[in-house]
Design a protein around this nucleic acid. Structure first.
Lengths: 340, 340
DNA sequence: TTTAAAAATACAATCGATTGTATTTTTAAA
DNA sequence: TTTAAAAATACAATCGATTGTATTTTTAAA
């Protein structure tokens, strides 16, 4: 195996004694080249093993046909489904997708933004990290290159669109469901309040309590990154509180950590403590008792976010309009919240 | 927000009345530029909001500082851990990582190869799709651009390295474990035999049976893509067989589908049928009974694959030597295989 | 102060495509 | 057959960097 010299359009042009501009047009199937010449060029390209160099093309056209996706963590089921939706729409439109994970780190998010900027991707879809408080690091890209659309974790920034669910309402429903099942002392596992999504979920919880005349108690809210270990930690704290008959967690991962801990301590779910999660991870249907949770239209969210972004890329209006969308969720009632 | 004109090194050069080559060298911190000039240039770059264009740079240097990773499915825990390992090593070495999922489709794998080739990534890490039977679609990249390293699903192709586990041995151990727990009629859930990894796993199963004087029966092997639904399908077939006291599945996903089905039919795991999976997915520790499985050093596999690839990228030897590695696995004994 | 060596900077070509304009060739109407 | 219009092709500049070589400036030894 030896590394051959790269064949360029100029090599093809020379071999056929025609101009490289004609070769370029032929390879792009331009109507300005005759069918006969196109065939000669294509044949020669195959013969010599020509491989187009997108770097050169992208540089010249100032277009990469690529969108960047920044995701906190690809291993989360919710996010991998969103990505599938994004890819489906993007590939159909002839775009490549570059997936980057921030691992919930602002520092990595900044580095990723930098790399996507210097590589001039045509647009970016982002669900910001839990550490991200302001969006200054998005400005250089937004001002110099292309549109950004937020998904999952919405954000009111410049005139960027957000595709998300109504976290407030979902949270309200989840909490009300626990109350309807007889819970009066509900602990809430919250995500970082830097993220608006988690602020909204918390407010939904608070307002649902309020509606049913249950006093809100900050001591019943545990804020964490919602990992499984965080869930275990929070569960320990729960068992130290005087009376708790319900736990509502802002994601399934932490809910499942807690359930495992409760199980190990002989605390019965749902009879002693009912549990509701968020995200409908596959694991939520397998754990015993099965976990009541909120299902989000993840795949659809990806598709919509992607198509809004592509629209904004095509339509190079300097003043992009917001095209935000709020998708519907569904409360999946399972056994972890069914008292008696 | 208005899209400003892109600032280039030529704009900086003009503004400072120096040559663009000096600007370029300054931005790359070349020793050929005086400290004073460097500072002037950097200040001006900040002032004008200069953003380097990697397309131009990569085109000129014929180097992208990017590696491509082709993964069958990012949502599988095993693969997302491998990716984390890859990213860790690559980022430390100053490389970007482009993640692409084939979704086990050869067609998509080909398209991805094409895109990575035309974008001239410096090297590729690949776990081939279940549909991939021959590697012809890897040749253009290998011949014209850079090295390819296989991970997870090894392959003897040209002089590409493979980083994998000893699937034969792992499978042998898993099967022997079931036998040690009293199983005599073990069904095997296999992946597609197009993939050498699944061929090796099957052989490990067969040889373990042989060693313990259990007759191998092809009718006890169900081949599928090993999705959860495939697991359920296979479980249905298992219950139609005369005597089965053990199931060994080539991945956890299918094993869990089967366990859920057994549960719904009142078949007790492990007492009626013991189950062993493969991959140590998080869900395997949560399901009841907890699932005995094979743990692979996924994160480490990613790190090693990545570092082997980076070495081969640096060392542009035309004749790359194989630097394959076989990593150790661990049988995680849990409750799904503990008879009595 | 002169001058050779070293340091700093400028010149010019280049990476591999694309594209507006100019020129040549072909077509078809007169 | 002539000729204007249409089709096909060629010319030349360009995208934004990098880099080998040439030139200028600075440094320091004589």
């Amino acid at each position: 195996m030896k590394k051959t010299e790269q064949i360029t359009i100029h090599d093809l042009a020379r071999a056929l004694e025609i101009d490289s501009s004609t070769v370029s047009r032929a390879l792009n199937d331009s109507p300005r080249v005759s069918a006969k010449t196109k065939k000669r060029i294509l044949d020669k390209a195959n013969e010599l093993g020509y491989q187009r160099n997108s770097l050169a093309s992208n540089l010249r056209t100032n277009k990469t046909n690529t969108i960047g996706v920044i995701v906190p963590r690809i291993s989360r089921n919710f996010f991998s489904n969103v990505i599938s939706g994004i890819e489906e729409t993007a590939y159909q439109a002839g775009y490549n997708v570059v997936i980057c994970q921030s691992l919930e780190s602002l520092d990595r998010e900044k580095k990723i933004m930098n790399s996507l900027l210097s590589n001039r991707v045509d647009g970016i879809l982002i669900s910001t990290s839990m550490e991200t408080e302001n969006m200054d690091h998005l400005k250089p890209y937004l001002n110099n290159v292309g549109p950004i659309v937020f998904y999952d974790r919405p954000c009111d920034f410049e005139n960027c669109s957000s595709i998300s669910i109504n976290d407030y309402k979902a949270s309200f429903e989840a909490t009300e469901h626990l109350i309807a099942n007889g819970c009066k002392h509900i602990v809430y596992f919250s995500g970082p309040q830097t993220v608006s999504l988690y602020r909204n979920r918390k407010q939904g919880y608070i307002d649902a309590l309020k509606k049913h005349d249950i006093e809100f108690n900050e001591a019943y809210c545990f804020e964490s990154m919602l990992s499984e270990d965080n869930g275990i930690e929070s569960a320990k704290k729960v068992l130290k509180l005087p009376v708790v008959d319900g736990v509502y967690s802002a994601n399934d991962t932490a809910a499942i950590g807690a359930m495992q801990y409760f199980k190990s301590k002989g605390v019965k779910v749902p009879d002693d403590i009912a549990v509701v999660g968020f995200n409908n991870d596959p694991i939520s249907g397998v754990i015993e008792p099965s976990l009541t949770t909120i299902n989000q239209p993840d795949f659809e969210m990806g598709k919509i976010a992607s198509s809004v972004l592509l629209q904004q890329i095509k339509n190079k209006d300097i003043n992009r309009k917001k095209q935000s969308a709020v998708l519907d969720i569904e409360l999946i009632k399972r056994n972890s919240s069914k008292k008696m």
